[in-house]
């Protein structure tokens, strides 16, 4: 299940739609799992709460930082502290370019930090490169056994 899926952690439906559109425009066909807040993202990844027994094993996590309940940086910290998700590629995709967010994000083990441009053309280009790199060029770490 969920083979080569992408976990999109995004609370804004507009951004979700635009991201889906950008992925589609770049012919990225992978399944997209959406989590609307940090807590849902964690449940989804660790098979807890509503996702009990069906932990997702995405190929890539696109993580917004400003999230309801559990914020993005905390989600990242939990991902990196769990052995099963320790090596999971996580790209921070956010509006913020506050230096401290960038620094903290990388400090917690983010693989990339991308600021969402307002210009949709630029956003599409960014998503294209991101998909190309992480889903095609990049050799992913070996899949851990599903919990």
């Amino acid at each position: 299940m969920h083979d080569r899926s992408i976990l999109l952690v995004e609370d804004n439906p507009d951004d979700e739609a635009l991201t889906r559109r950008a992925l589609a425009k770049n012919n990225i066909q992978n399944e997209i799992i959406v989590a609307r807040d940090g807590a849902e993202a964690l449940d989804c990844l660790f098979g807890t709460g509503p996702h009990a027994g069906q932990a997702a094993a995405p190929e890539l996590v696109l993580l917004d930082l400003k999230l309801p309940k559990v914020d993005g940086l905390e989600v990242l910290r939990r991902i990196r502290s769990h052995p099963r998700t320790r090596l999971l590629p996580v790209v921070i995709l956010t509006s913020s370019r506050e230096e401290r967010d960038v620094v903290t994000g990388y400090g917690l083990g983010a693989n990339s930090y991308i600021r969402k441009p307002v210009d949709f053309g630029q956003f599409v280009e960014a998503v294209r490169q991101l998909g190309l790199y992480w889903l095609i060029l990049n050799e992913p770490p070996p899949k851990p056994d599903a919990a």
């Binding site: 559109r21 930082l65 400003k66 956010t94 509006s95 913020s96 370019r97 307002v118 949709f120 956003f123």
Partner: peptide, 22 residues
């Protein structure tokens, strides 16, 4: 406030731009 501006004020702009483009 700045954080909020940087993050939240841009999101609607992205929608405006993105959906106009769409």
């Amino acid at each position: 406030f700045s954080y909020s501006v940087s993050h939240d004020l841009r999101a609607p702009l992205r929608s405006l731009d993105g959906f106009s483009q769409a």
